[in-house]
Design a binder for these strands. Structure first.
Lengths: 374, 374
DNA sequence: CTGAAAGCGCTAACAC
DNA sequence: GTGTTAGCGCTTTCAG
């Protein structure tokens, strides 16, 4: 028996004990009232609930989780994508008023998708973007508070994931399955190379462009590499020579870097490229500014394409032709996968073969490639 | 002394005990290694960390929260705003390809704002939309797992909030302070009536329109009422007669209802209104469809305005003139308020006077009112 | 249908 | 520095 707290101690958040005492039942009954109402006589139940309301009692999620080993929460870890430029550039983009509301990113879509799916299954969603580097890695914090979670590729150190995935379901998003020892994780990716290949083919065949330049990413990124691969395939298929490396690799895939990349590419000797293909939309948008500054018309003088299909891509002028990734859907599928693992019972959880799915992407033809009037 | 678990029990998620045992230290030390690394001798620390990694140990957020009475998580409860129409209408809006990514709602903005601010303060964000009605009200679930949270007005029963706010900081969003007994909650709202008044004034003075029609909401909604009030004030100031009630009240503020409302208003006898003012953007967009179907040009034949400033409003044709609410900022301010309460120490928490702030809004003039070529 | 008792995994004084 | 010892608030058998 736990020592009864003095008298009606004020200012202390009420617990099952308080409610139990005041309603003349045991804590077990109070617990039952919340977890399995029907197992308690109606009269007793009402009395308990009344006292609870009266006392301002709210069951502690922590205590509950501890005792029942489950939280009813799913998580999502994503990188701190915030592109400083993105916020203000939207307005500058075409002289409209400020509208940072339009800059809906990648991760927002995934959040939307996950939240909805999670809700359908009765879960709440815990989201956290990676901070530079706290004492305890972000994942640990999230992992410790959820039943399972999704991680945007390369958001957290592989090593951490390896450890964590041993104790709860984790689904890897967008990044192709990292070859390492994480091959037991469920994983969802999009058809990066298919998309970039198709986009490139479009530029070559439908617009007759042949002098292309590709801007990739300096850091290791399977997604970006896959895109580049698709680009190369399309070029080769059309008999266009391409190197094994992108024409340029930027340190960060932001608008500022995209603008800089455009300058760099344009300053190179030799024939000016007819099209600039960027590994993501933000860079493409940044390039648009450079091009405008240099007095080059898009797409007449040079076509520009991005990748991702973020809202921003359609708001700038000219609207950017890109490859849309079904991020919302990815979020939903992630939840489905997690829920499946979670409901699969402890044994099956590890037994089941890791799932790996590839979501289809679609080329979005807009003005920046010449498909619609700029 | 807790009974040592048999031997290296496999398949059981490791705990401090396991780590302690295997690294030859006490559980207290293991705990210290995570919470206060510097208080442990480097050598010991490394050893513990190695074992932890080895075992796949991840501190349980629940146990931690229970023991330390704090979760490091802030929450947000929002209504299930999903407008079935919103998803597909975007594309239909102006013949562009499907782009539901552009339909960023109200709540998404708040989430963005909160997530960022929360991250800055070292908190994670738990989000949950109200489901029809689970056993335990949504709030309770969230409330039990966070240190404090924000609630979009009218998302959860006042009664629940009253109870919960007694034990942790809660900030009410967007809905004006509910007169009830919730006046001790911090609260953030936007200048609804100021915005609608200014928009209306613009229509009257700058565009010379005088036959206006206002579409409100049938259910009780302080925000919507405040907007209507602003509308009335502007009309009266211009010597235009207006009733005490909106010209029409819809049961749901969706696109479908907006379309229906436009039809209803247009079918009424008497002079056709020169402008249709809607209490939110979604309805305005819905009205656009009706108007197009009936062969009426916007804004030449009839002007249309919305409220909120969601991304969708600028994507349709003609773009909708509206009043933008700084939702992102609202999310940030909410976190600041919560963090302040939380860091204010237990005593101060209740002591501090409830804060109430009103964020300014801004009229966004676009094509649907005649400000830019349709 | 209800009560008693044993934890769940970790933190937090307090000793050593 | 590190170990001991209590709980934190709730769920969960197992009895009755």
């Amino acid at each position: 028996m736990r020592p009864t707290r003095g008298t009606d101690s004020v200012s202390t958040t009420p617990t099952v004990y308080d409610v139990a005492e005041r309603s003349g039942v045991s804590i077990a009954t109070v617990s039952r009232v919340y977890r399995n109402p029907d197992s308690v006589r109606a009269q007793t139940r009402e009395r308990v609930l009344a006292v609870a309301r009266d006392l301002g009692y709210v069951p502690s999620g922590n205590a509950r989780g501890l005792a029942s080993r489950s939280t009813g929460v799913l998580g999502l870890c994503f990188p701190d994508y915030s592109d400083p430029d993105a916020e203000s550039e939207v307005e500058a983009g075409h002289g409209d008023e400020a509208d940072d509301e339009a800059a809906m990113l990648y991760s927002d879509q995934i959040i939307r998708g996950m939240e909805r799916a999670a809700r359908r299954h009765g879960y709440a969603l815990l989201i956290a973007a990676s901070l530079k580097g706290g004492p305890e890695s972000l994942v640990a914090k999230v992992a410790g508070r959820v039943d399972g979670f999704a991680v945007l590729a390369r958001t957290v150190p592989t090593e951490d994931l390896e450890v964590i995935s041993r104790r709860q379901p984790v689904v890897m998003l967008a990044g192709p399955r990292e070859s390492n020892q994480l091959d037991h994780l469920d994983h969802i990716e999009v058809a990066n190379s298919d998309g970039q290949r198709e986009l490139t083919r479009h530029l070559i065949e439908d617009h007759g462009l042949r002098r292309l330049a590709y801007v990739g990413f300096a850091e290791e990124s399977p997604d970006v590499e896959a895109r580049f691969r698709g680009y190369v395939e399309a070029c080769r298929a059309a008999g266009i020579e391409v190197g094994a490396e992108p024409d340029l690799r930027v340190p960060m895939m932001t608008q500022a870097e995209g603008a800089r990349a455009a300058d760099a590419l344009l300053d190179r000797l030799g024939d000016r490229p007819e099209a600039l293909l960027f590994a993501n939309d933000q860079m493409a948008v940044g390039a648009l500014h450079t091009l405008e500054r240099r007095g080059l018309r898009v797409p007449q003088d040079v076509a520009v394409t991005g990748f991702d299909g973020i809202a921003l891509s359609r708001l700038v002028r000219p609207a950017v032709t890109t490859v849309r990734q079904p991020m919302r859907r990815m979020g939903e599928e992630a939840v489905e996968l997690l829920v499946r693992r979670l409901s699969g019972g402890q044994p099956a959880q590890n037994a089941a073969e890791p799932v790996s799915m590839t979501l289809p992407v679609s080329v979005v033809r807009r003005a920046s490639c010449g498909c619609k009037p700029a």
